[in-house]
Nucleic acid binder design. Sequence first.
DNA 1: GGGTCAATCATTAAAAAAGATGATTTTTAG
DNA 2: CTAAAAATCATCTTTTTTAATGATTGACCC
Lengths: 206, 206
Amino acid sequence: MGMKVSLFIVDDHYMVIEGLRSLLQNEKDIEWLGHATNAASCLSFLKKQQPDVMLMDVNLPDKSGIDLCKEVSQIYPSVYVLGLSTFNQQAIIRNLMENGASGYVLKNASKEELLEAIATVVSGKTYMSQEVKISLRETENKIPPITRREKEVLQMIALGFTNAEISGKLFISIPTVNTHRKSLLEKFEAKNTAILISTVIKLGII
Amino acid sequence: MGMKVSLFIVDDHYMVIEGLRSLLQNEKDIEWLGHATNAASCLSFLKKQQPDVMLMDVNLPDKSGIDLCKEVSQIYPSVYVLGLSTFNQQAIIRNLMENGASGYVLKNASKEELLEAIATVVSGKTYMSQEVKISLRETENKIPPITRREKEVLQMIALGFTNAEISGKLFISIPTVNTHRKSLLEKFEAKNTAILISTVIKLGII
DNA sequence: GGGTCAATCATTAAAAAAGATGATTTTTAG
DNA sequence: CTAAAAATCATCTTTTTTAATGATTGACCC
C-alpha cells in the first residue's frame, strides 16, 4: 500500500500508550495522530479529525469501550475500531464486535501482530488474534441463547430477589417466574441457583 | 541517592514493557536490567542476578503473580517486589501484599508516580497509589473476616453442592454445614444464596 | 396459514435453604 | 494456662426453591 495509515489511541494506561508509540513511531506506514485517555477527549478529537484506525481500550475511566465503540462507529463509520484489552474476556469481545468494532487485539500482542491487525482492518476485513478466536469458539458453546425475559429474571435472581419479589416487580405471576427460572437452570445446565449465578457471572452475562 | 536502582520487569504484555522501557530508559537513577514475560524466565534470571526492584504484573501466563511474588520474596528477600496491574482488584492487591510485595501501582500510573513508587520501596517503605488506597479502604468494610472452614463451605456452595453433599465431602454433619452457611449469609449481609454468590465473586473472594 | 417459540399461568409435591436457639468440643492466640 | 474464637452438632419451623406436567395466548417466520 502506498498511503500511510493514520492511527489514534484511546487508552487510560500511560505505559501502554508509551509502548505503542515506541513500537509504532518508526513505522513508515503508520501515521501517529495522537492519543486520548478517556472517551470524552476521544470524541472531541474525532470532531476535528478522523483516523483510519482507532485502537481502543475496552476499559475507560468515563465510559465503557463498548459504548464508545458504538458511538464512534455510528457517527464516523469510516473509522475502523480495533479493540484492545488485557484479558481474553469473551463476553466483552462479543459485545464489542456487535457494536461496530473491526477487530480485537490483546495487549500481549507483538509489533508484528499489531501491524497485521491494523493492515487487516484497513483492508475492510476483521482481525482477531488466534488465541482470542480459539477461546471465543470454546465459550461459544457454553453460552446458551436466553430470551429477554429470562435475562431480566436472571438479573433479579442475582440481586437476591425471591420469586415472589420478582413476580411483584415484573408484574407476572409466581409460577411464571418459576418457569423462567427453571428454563435458566436447564439452559445453563446448572443444578441450583448457586452454580447458576457462578456460571453466568464468570461468563460475563450479568 | 547516589546509587542507581536496578530494575527488572515481569510482564507478558509487550506494549507495557516497551512503554516502561521508553519511560525509564533515560532516567539516570534507574538501571534497566531487562524483562521476562513469564514466571519461569523471571526465576531463571534471578538465579544469575538480583535487581533492587522488580515490577511484576499480577497476571502471568504460567503462574499467578501472587505465587511468583511469594517465591521471589522468600528466596530473594532483598528484592523489592512492586505489583503492577490494570485493575484496582482489591482482593488481589491484598493477597499480593500479604505475600511479600512492597507496593502496588496501576498501569495508568504516570512516570512521576512510577519513580516515586520505586524510590519509596527502595527506602524500605511500602507504596500504594492514592486511588488504590482509597478503594482498598472502601471495600475493606465490605469484606468481613471469614474462617477457613467458612471459606471451604462457600466455595462448595458456589460449585453447586447442596448441604448434604458438602456434609459428605467435608465429613461433617448437615446441621454444621447449615451453621456455616448461615454465618456466611450473616457476615456478607446476604439474604439468600444467589446474592451471596454474586457478592463474593465480585469481591474476588472465590 | 401452519409451525415454532416466547411468555404466560396452574397444580401438586418433594427437596433444600433459611431462621431461631442452644450447646459441646477443639483450636488458637495472648 | 486460659479466655476467646472456631468448629461442631441438635431440634424444630417456615420459607423458598426445584421438579414434573400441562395448557393458553400472541408474535414472528417461511
